[in-house]
């Protein structure tokens, strides 16, 4: 039914699939900095890795943001539902935490990406 060439074809395709995932992981690059945007303005830009806790003023009130190594989270926020706090840590390039009542976006960007790269 299946010949030897069929099986080697399937195996080589699977090998290419696995290789692609590794390449994709490599091509994403290293997480370089954290950007905090309030109401569309860039409030803070912090290089990674770093360990610190700082406050930003959102539209609704203060937000506490924690950076630990290459991870970022919202430690506390002055919004009613705390969705941004519950979303926990982010640590990959392109990920973001958004707090709507405060109109705040915290995102991780890579090196070659322009600041407005994800909002073009």
């Amino acid at each position: 039914m299946l010949t030897k060439s069929d099986i080697s074809l399937v195996l080589s395709v699977i090998a290419v699939i696995v290789g692609c995932y590794f390449l994709y992981d490599l091509s994403r690059g290293v997480e370089k900095f954290v950007v905090v945007e309030i109401d569309g303005r860039i409030e803070k830009k912090i290089d990674l890795p770093k360990n610190l806790i700082f406050d930003v003023n959102g539209v609704n009130g203060p937000i506490k943001i924690e950076i630990s190594g290459r991870k970022v989270r919202m430690l506390d926020s002055s919004c009613p539902n705390k969705i941004c706090v519950k979303s926990g840590w982010i640590n990959k390039r392109g990920e973001s935490i958004i707090c709507l009542p405060n109109r705040a976006i915290v995102k991780i960007l890579g090196e070659e990406e322009e600041l407005d790269g994800t909002t073009r």
Partner: peptide
């Protein structure tokens, strides 16, 4: 390669 691949291989 008329004989090398089965029909399943060719469709793959």
């Amino acid at each position: 390669f008329p004989k090398r691949f089965s029909l399943i291989g060719v469709s793959l």
